[in-house]
Structure formats: structure tokens, C-alpha cells
């Protein structure tokens, strides 16, 4: 008996991968599960146009489909799909030889990043978000990328290791250096004000 939509929606990522290899239409469930997350991730990396984002997402999911047999069941599927997304975006940057433009980081996670980097924050988060956007745009791409994955996508160190294909120790060092760099850039633009509770 064919599984119902509800049953398929309740299946794990890994189960959907196995089923997609048998019936490609089931791949739609994986797409729908990750479409919004990857769209947000791609938009955080650079201010692509709507069409570019759609194109990129299409490329990413086609690449995922082609690579389904290569999915290592010992990895989390989300780490694996983020790895493919990350690599596709980097390829797109290299192809266009463009440096990503500033994007907006005006949400609660911006405050998390700022406090984690021991940067005093404005009560006015809008202001903090604007300054953060400018500072993030000035970071090296790999530094910006790792901060976005850690603080905005909420990835753990192990997940970052699997996404970026680097040892955990290196990931920790990269985050430390990126936060330090961000702090220096923010201090240059004089964001420091007193925090009021």
C-alpha cells in the first residue's frame, strides 16, 4: 500500500533519501523540508537577486539528487546538504568573481553573535543589525560563512566540521579568529554603547 503524504512527512531525512532512490517524486519531500532553510542561508551569504536565489536552489537540489547514492549515512543529512549548498554558493562566487554585498542581519541571532563575541550591544537592535551587516560584509568570505553557519544557522562544531570538511579543532580556531576580526571591525565603526537591562 502506498504511503500517505502524512506518513512520508514523518519519515527521517535518511529514510527519505533511500525512498527517493526508488521513486524520484519522494525527493519533493526533502526539497520542501530544506527549501526555506537553504534559501535563508543563501540569502545570508550574499544579497543575490530573487532569480539568482531560485537558480542557486535549483542547482543545489539537482546536485543533491545526483549525489544521493554518495550520502554517507554516518553523517547528519542536514550537514551533508548544507555542505553541497555551501560549495555551490562558493562556486557561484568564483564564477562571477564577485565579492558578496552586505546583507541584513537584523534579528535576535545578531544579538547572540554580538554578545558571544563580547561586543556590547545597543538596546536598539535595528542599529546593531545595520552595523553588524556592514562589519560582516568586510570580513573575509570564509570568516563570514562560518559565523553565519554557527550563529544564524545554529550549527554545532561537529556539524560545521562535516559541512566545511575541516577538523573540529580548526573549526573552533576559525570561529575564534572570525569573532575577533568582527569585533575589531565593529570597534572601528564605534558601535560600543552601554547595555541597558
Amino acid at each position: 500500500m502506498a504511503e500517505t503524504t502524512l506518513q512520508l512527512q514523518q519519515k527521517s531525512d535518511e529514510e527519505l533519501v533511500s525512498l527517493s532512490l526508488i521513486d524520484k517524486n519522494i525527493f519533493a519531500y526533502l526539497i520542501e523540508r530544506y527549501e526555506a532553510k537553504l534559501k535563508r542561508y543563501v540569502n545570508r551569504l550574499a544579497s543575490f537577486s530573487h532569480e539568482e536565489v531560485e537558480d542557486l536552489l535549483q542547482e543545489i537540489f539537482i546536485k543533491v539528487y545526483k549525489s544521493l547514492n554518495d550520502f554517507d549515512q554516518k553523517l547528519k543529512f542536514s550537514s551533508w546538504i548544507y555542505r553541497i549548498a555551501h560549495n555551490q554558493v562558493i562556486s557561484r562566487f568564483r564564477y562571477h568573481q564577485a565579492r558578496p554585498q552586505a546583507v541584513s542581519f537584523e534579528d535576535d541571532r545578531a544579538v547572540n553573535l554580538l554578545s558571544d563575541a563580547e561586543i556590547e550591544v545597543e538596546v536598539d537592535r535595528h542599529l546593531a543589525g545595520e552595523e553588524l551587516s556592514r562589519a560582516m560584509a568586510e570580513l573575509k568570505p570564509e570568516q563570514r560563512d562560518i559565523l553565519i553557519l554557527r550563529f544564524f544557522e545554529g550549527k554545532s562544531y561537529d556539524e560545521l566540521s562535516d559541512i566545511l570538511k575541516k577538523p573540529s579543532g580548526t573549526v573552533a580556531s576559525l570561529i575564534h579568529v572570525a569573532k575577533k576580526s568582527l569585533k575589531q571591525k565593529l570597534e572601528k565603526t564605534k558601535i560600543n554603547t552601554n547595555t541597558t537591562n
Binding site: F27, A28, E32, F61, I62
Partner: peptide, 9 residues
């Protein structure tokens, strides 16, 4: 099914 998933399939 979303528009993107239709396009991809």
C-alpha cells in the same frame, strides 16, 4: 507540492 519542488522534479 511547492513551486520549486515541481520545477526540480
Amino acid at each position: 507540492m511547492s513551486e520549486l519542488s515541481s520545477k526540480i522534479l
